[in-house]
């Protein structure tokens, strides 16, 4: 009998305790952040959309290798010494590789940050930019290369020409040497 009334009493009082607690929160400051109007400031190391700094990239492919989901595609070609257009890196050193293709598919990216830590020149970096949703999945394929496909073809052709020239020269020189040796 005593237990019965004790149960009723505790049920009643604990409910009142709870109501006191909830009512004490009514006038507390709200924690809501009204997103598009106010935004949280992200820390500078936040891992959001990737950004490639082309002046640092030397198409070494380490980011593509490090990526666990294969969302980065890198293609490069050596800069031909004959190329009329010569480029320099951010630190003034001459560019050795043209980046003919650098694509990141953000639909695949898992924002793990491994490419960032693998990059030897700090070219690829996560930014704090996170509002880049698209209705079309294909629009999430970002192309970071500065060269147009035609230009890339041109660079490849130049390199191939240069290589061929080198080979010819080499062949002729070795042939010359062989000739000398024969004599």
């Amino acid at each position: 009998m005593f237990e019965y009334f004790k149960n009723i009493w505790s049920g009643f009082t604990t409910a009142l305790h709870g109501m006191a607690i909830t009512s004490s929160h009514i006038f507390a400051k709200s924690v809501t952040i009204q997103y598009p109007d106010e935004k949280l400031t992200l820390p500078s190391n936040a891992r959001n959309r990737l950004q490639l700094e082309m002046s640092r990239c030397n198409a070494c492919n380490s980011c593509a290798v490090a990526c666990p989901v294969n969302c980065i595609t890198v293609e490069g070609t050596r800069v031909s010494p004959d190329d009329p257009q010569q480029d320099v890196h951010w630190d003034g050193k001459p560019r050795k590789m043209w980046v003919t293709r650098y694509e990141i598919d953000f639909a695949k990216c898992c924002f793990c940050g491994l490419c960032q830590s693998a990059c030897p020149t700090d070219a690829i970096k996560h930014t704090v930019e996170y509002e880049y949703s698209e209705y079309d999945r294909n629009k999430l394929l970002y192309k970071f290369q500065t060269l147009s496909p035609a230009e890339a073809e041109e660079k490849k052709r130049l390199l191939a020409e240069f290589r061929a020239k080198e080979k010819e020269k080499e062949c002729s020189s070795t042939a010359g040497k062989a000739h000398e040796a024969k004599e």
């Binding site: 909830t22 400051k29 709200s30 809501t32 009204q34």
Partner: peptide, 13 residues
Amino acid sequence: KISAWIQERLGPM
């Protein structure tokens, strides 16, 4: 609104 205030939210705004 009351549920929002109790839970320290703003509710519909």
